[in-house]
């Protein structure tokens, strides 16, 4: 029962995201046979070192979506303080309302059923532009971002070029 609600809701979100996609975002199920696994492409925000890059990510939804949030993992290289070396994205909107592992997140920023895939992807896009220094998932990237900004930007730009095969 719960999983039919989840698949209906996901299908609805897929439709919305397809008919009026937000700027720089393409997302949908890898195959409609499994609506709980999506792949998204996020464009690097302009005016940041991520500009011009396209970042593929995988979203895995729980069977009780939208009660619980999906997990999101970048499939390519993303050198960013809030992205684990494994690609896993650490951002408040992906944390269930009950758990607040870092004790700094406002309830309104965390996951709730009124949020959506679109909001997650937009939040991740703005996270790329503005890293959150309070909860680094990649310590090395966070340190570099804080202390050697130009090196950080160069690392990111080189990654963008590599990811586009140049």
């Amino acid at each position: 029962m719960a999983s039919t609600i989840a698949s209906r809701r996901l299908f609805h979100e897929y439709k919305l995201l397809t008919s009026s996609p937000p700027d720089g975002i393409t997302a949908g199920p890898v195959s409609e046979d499994d609506i709980f696994l999506w792949e998204a492409l996020i464009q690097g925000p302009d005016g940041t070192p991520f500009e011009g890059g396209i970042f593929p990510a995988e979203l895995k939804f729980p069977k009780d979506y939208p009660l619980n949030p999906p997990t999101m993992r970048f499939l390519g290289e993303v050198w960013h303080p809030n992205v684990y070396p494994s690609g896993l994205v650490c951002i408040s909107i992906l944390h269930a309302p009950g758990d607040d592992p870092h004790h700094y997140e406002k309830a309104s920023e965390r996951w709730s059923p009124i949020q959506s895939v679109e909001k997650i992807l937009i939040s991740v896009m703005s996270m790329l532009a503005e890293p959150n220094d309070e909860s680094p998932a990649n310590i090395e990237a966070a340190k570099m971002w804080r202390e050697r900004r130009s090196e950080f930007e160069k690392t990111v730009r080189d990654g963008v070029k590599r990811s586009l095969g140049m």
Partner: peptide
């Protein structure tokens, strides 16, 4: 990281 990922193309 360089060698770990395949490019988008």
């Amino acid at each position: 990281l360089k060698s770990k990922h395949i490019d988008l193309i």
